[in-house]
Nucleic acid binder design. Structure first.
Lengths: 145, 145
DNA sequence: GCACATATGTTATATTATAACAATTTATAT
DNA sequence: ATATAAATTGTTATAATATAACATATGTGC
């Protein structure tokens, strides 16, 4: 197992122990599969990979694990790709920002703690009660230009 | 036909005439269906509505129209809802910002011309060549709180 | 151990989107 | 006006993504 995967798993284990919630086998497998992917991975690719670790898993197994991992903030969904990435923030956050390379497919998370002022101003102006946000930037990463 | 739908259609007609591209019947129908919806509408709901205006339309008809309308900037896709809304900006833009009410489902577009500085800074820091962006804010609209 | 809550297994199906190829319509050049 | 190319549509089939529903099992607190 790659060191970064190991680290992510260890972190998740720790947080789950603290919060007294269960990082079960299928959840751990799914998290390690996502962590082991160099780019966002879709649910059915996760399923394919999972079938090498478990006996004949079905879609709900993957989607349930995804739901759990998202709820804990261990992974995020890249909406424009229908795919999932691990979160490397050390704190829970209600907003996410990603840079998606349209060439190689890799995604970098930009950790802003707060919604940028121009956007926040819009919510105030509209009296919109913000609960979460997602930003996806598309373009080319440094290596692909 | 509602006045706002009429207006959106007229604008689209005008722009297409200018650019010498064709706003064909199915495209016009799909645009008017999206414009007539009070909130983002999914492709298969568009299809259902379209079947009252055309003889037995199929998914590709809707998706092709959507693709065209998106390319012209007449509509946007709300990624977190798999649904479509008309764009009321009077200029083409490569970035979009939406406030999505999780209660009533209505969406308000916030027209920022530029990517907020904190995000732009991140792209520069990563040497990421930006081509487009999408921001989706979730929460409760003024009326639903 | 028992009751309850949580998590998983399993089957089926819903929802969203596209591929592939044929037919038609429109634009363009001669 | 007519051949040709380009754009658009029709049609069938299927891919890709996600969830409902219900049965079973497993862990937790008493």
């Amino acid at each position: 197992m790659k060191p970064n995967v190991k680290k992510i798993l260890a972190q998740a284990e720790h947080i789950c122990a603290q919060k007294d919630i269960r990082l079960t086998e299928s959840r751990r497998h799914v998290l390690s599969i996502i962590a082991g992917s160099s780019k966002p991975i879709g649910a059915y690719d996760i399923l394919k990979s999972l079938s090498q670790k478990m006996d004949n898993p079905k879609p709900p197994t993957v989607y349930r694990a995804i739901e759990f991992l998202q709820a804990q903030g261990f992974i995020h969904r890249i909406e424009s790709l229908n795919a999932y990435v691990t979160c490397d923030a050390h704190h829970h956050h209600t907003g996410s920002q990603f840079m998606v390379c349209d060439d190689c497919g890799k995604v970098t998370e930009a950790h802003l703690c707060d919604l940028p002022t121009p956007l926040l101003d819009k919510t105030k102006k509209e009296n919109f009660k913000l609960s979460s946000w997602n930003v996806e930037l598309h373009g080319l990463c440094a290596g692909c230009q």
